Simulated assay, not measured.
Amino acid sequence: MTFKSLPVEQFLANLAAKQPTPGGGAAAAIGASIGSAAASMAAAYTQRKKDRVSGAADRAESLIAVLEVSPLLEAADDDAVAYADLQRTWNNDSDNISVEEKAAIEARALAIPTKILEACHSRILQINDFLPHCNPNITSDAKVGIHQLAGAARAAYQTVLVNSPREEEKIRLIKLLKDIREMEDEVLKLDC
């Protein structure tokens, strides 16, 4: 069974259990999907007649398409598979794994949380650009999306670090996190 088809309560029980998966990468992906869904709802409510006239509805529809949660839910499953493969390289059976295969497995384990972080950054940028056009009665849900995605990005980064990225990759990802923090701080300022 995939994580995306589990009831929320069961996913959380699995996450809390003493078992290797789901782990931090899957938690980051699920958190990102929750943030995307919250912001998508705000866009769905930006479909009034005046939103159509102003063009805000078109922006909302574009945002809804970008915030599709399926890729993030698939990333949760992919992370679990990648981690299981990575564990296989640590077992006694690792003698049957070639150096090339081990390198490919390690690269995949690093790539998945990296893509989650990048997806969070991209989605936050687009939600942030949408905020001035959002139905003002539901802007808070778009902001919830930003905050949830920001947390998911930081969680994904922790999973990246476990997979020993190159120094230049860490620097690049930290830059994305700083960019996210600036947007998140700006959203928080608007609420003061």
Rank of each mutant, 00 (worst) to 15 (best):
T46C: 00
S36G: 14
A29T: 01
A80Q: 05
L72P: 02
L72E: 07
M41W: 14
A39C: 03
K50D: 12
S62L: 07
V66C: 00
T89A: 04
A57V: 01
V53F: 06
T46F: 00
S70C: 03
R88H: 15
A38C: 10
E68W: 05
V66I: 15
A76R: 07
G55K: 01
A57K: 11
D78M: 11
K49C: 00
I34W: 14
I64D: 07
L67E: 01
I64P: 04
A27D: 13
E74W: 10
A32P: 02
M41L: 14
A42V: 09
S70P: 00
S36I: 08
G55W: 01
I64L: 09
Q87K: 15
A56C: 04
S70G: 12
T46G: 00
D79I: 04
T89G: 03
V66F: 07
A43N: 03
K49P: 02
D51S: 11
R88W: 14
D79G: 01
A65W: 07
D79P: 02
G31C: 04
T46P: 00
D77G: 11
A80V: 08
S36E: 06
I30Q: 12
I30C: 06
S54N: 10
S62R: 15
D77A: 13
L86S: 03
A28N: 12
S33W: 07
R48V: 00
A57S: 14
V53E: 10
L73G: 04
A60G: 05
V81F: 07
E61V: 13
Q47W: 06
V66Y: 10
S33T: 13
Q87M: 15
D79A: 01
M41A: 06
S40P: 03
A42H: 05
R52H: 09
S54D: 07
D77I: 08
A82H: 06
D85H: 08
Y45M: 09
A27T: 14
V66H: 14
A43H: 07
Q87T: 09
D51N: 13
S40A: 07
D85C: 12
A38E: 15
G55S: 04
G35D: 01
E68C: 12
I30N: 07
G55R: 01
V53D: 14
A84D: 14
S62C: 09
K49H: 10
T89P: 02
A84I: 15
R88P: 00
M41H: 10
A42I: 08
I30T: 15
G31V: 09
D78Y: 12
L72W: 11
A44C: 11
A76E: 08
Q47T: 05
D78N: 13
A26I: 15
I34C: 13
D77F: 04
